[in-house]
Amino acid sequence: MNPENLQVKIKAENLDFYYGANRALKNVTIECFDKKVTAIIGPSGCGKSTFIRTLNRMNDVIPGTRLEGKILIDGADIHAPDVDVVDLRRRVGMVFQKPNPFPKSIFDNIAYGLRINGMKNKRKIEEVVERSLRGAALWEEVKDRLNDNAFSLSGGQQQRLCIARALAVEPEVILFDEPCSAIDPIATAKVEDLIEHLKTRYTVVIVTHNMQQAARVSDYTAFMMLGELVEFDRTEKIFTNPANKLTEDYITGRFG
């Protein structure tokens, strides 16, 4: 499935994932293209979160889990023994469902990733903080209150702060797990605009329950059910002329 001959950024091959005995991903094979937005849709519990969390190996921290198959980023196996998972997570950023600012100042939230990655130069940090906040369309709203606690921001602002925080460490891929499910429609519109914009520089994978959102922001859409990838195609195609009956039923709201 690569009609435009795009560069493949992420490739999952025959991916299986187990929580103990529960097989949450079944033989998933998918390609996410460079500088495109890939949306993952599907009913609750079908393994969307599980899937994107395998991409930055966040599932590694859950005890009793097991992964089979391969994930390649830029052609390199992310489970290869010489891969540093810490470095992988810097390259593959993640924004969570619920905004999770740290109880620090707005500035320190953004600077956090820089500091743990060893950046000491104050001027440079300030520069990156500003650039990241601009990148997340938050700069104008917070530039006069960088030292305020991040908890004082609204939910939508907090989510954009988390996006800025992810941008600051200059990842190549950004994973969004239902980034708008905890924020209001206006804030959602802002985040969607932002994602549109982000794909000029980053590869984006977004999990969403909102069909309109998937249709609006993504170039490619994957439909999953019960741990399996049912259909993967250009978003236009999925939403106008899906090949699989299950996909059609789902996007037309016949089950959910």
Partner: peptide, 21 residues
């Protein structure tokens, strides 16, 4: 846990996440 996960997702080591967050 979101403090721990948030830090890990930015490329912190486990100890860094614990120590700083």
């Amino acid at each position: 846990d979101s403090y721990r996960e948030g830090a890990l997702a930015l490329g912190a080591t486990k100890w860094q996440a614990i120590r700083t967050n």
